[in-house]
Design a protein around this nucleic acid. Sequence first.
DNA 1: GTCTATACATGGATAGAC
DNA 2: GTCTATCCATGTATAGAC
Lengths: 223, 223
Amino acid sequence: MSAQAQHPEASVATTPKAPRRAPASDAGADTRDRLIDAARACLQSEGIAGVSARAIARHGDLNQALVFYHYGAVEGLLQEVARIDSDRRAQLYATELAAVATLAELVAVGRRIHDAEAARGSTVVLSQLLAGAHSSPALGEAVHGGMAAWTTLVEQALGRVLANTPLASVVPIGDIAYAIASLFLGLELMGGVDGDLERVDSLFTSLDAVSALVDALLRSGTA
Amino acid sequence: MSAQAQHPEASVATTPKAPRRAPASDAGADTRDRLIDAARACLQSEGIAGVSARAIARHGDLNQALVFYHYGAVEGLLQEVARIDSDRRAQLYATELAAVATLAELVAVGRRIHDAEAARGSTVVLSQLLAGAHSSPALGEAVHGGMAAWTTLVEQALGRVLANTPLASVVPIGDIAYAIASLFLGLELMGGVDGDLERVDSLFTSLDAVSALVDALLRSGTA
DNA sequence: GTCTATACATGGATAGAC
DNA sequence: GTCTATCCATGTATAGAC
């Protein structure tokens, strides 16, 4: 994904050139959207190793040069994808998790989100971006924000679930939230390889039963 | 990572050419080992997106053409890396998990394995291979075997832990084992991005406490 | 803002010398 | 079995026309 670097680096971008990122202005906004979508599609079907300005352009029937005009380089575009997806995800999770008050509900929301994200293919995109982030600090930074927001939201929901419960002071909520977020990621990666769609479904069904049990125990231990 | 494919495909490899895989014979065995090591190092420091025959050669001070002579193509070499690492991992896990009889021991083994694998960098390699596997069925196949073996070993250990326990008939061992394996993977990916080494340590410490508690409950519920 | 054309670099893969 | 040299495909990035 990288060749040379005869770019003048991060100069101040004097006047009309190299809008390192979206100029925020009106015109070309549609093209930028199409570039984002194309990059996502490319990431999804070719993987991070198959991404290039030309490959992205193909996926959106766009001109290869537009990547450089609007984002300076392929990586700039990928960073933008990471940011946008992070925001969308944060909003989705915030909405879904807002009403969660029991473990069973948390599991149900987890399944719903997983199914929706898997169907949309956005977890594939995320895992590919994460793999790419390993060798690109800037991309890593762009992805990291989204992960942190994710973990925080799960943490808050967990806090609500366990509030006024004997477990509240025992269970390390931050750790568990981190584990849950990691588990989500791992499930996607595993699923991408073994192609076993029923596995995750079975897992969630098991968690349904277990969470209902724990909820009952919690209610009896509190009240 | 791919350009053209003017390779005669998987012909029968008449006589002296294109030993699609390691000829198993003596000579050149050392070179093959060095190629494997170089590929691993390359995967680790450049990521799947930065892997190429030339990049691999650089990492091992080898000649680029050797990749094609010994493995037919870059992907063949990566598949070999996946297989070898899978075998090593399966052996390590089998040894470590053999003595596990309680949840606390399982957690302790989990921490030890995670630390060892993280220190060695082999989880980074695995996650990069997994990302690459998404767009390469053959590589996916090579990686999948290792994951399955992994899950199976955890499953067997869990079975032993819960044997003669009220939970044995309630807990879906296969699902939990799959979740544990996924969690391992996810933790590595997360860690690669947020660079927070203490997080996982903290998580394992929490799990130590929880597992000890559950073990006590199990023992009192059985005996 | 978008396109075509083009420079230059890198990578896959092979032939042939050693 | 390993190396050098080489061909050709692909990719990055820019210049300049529209």
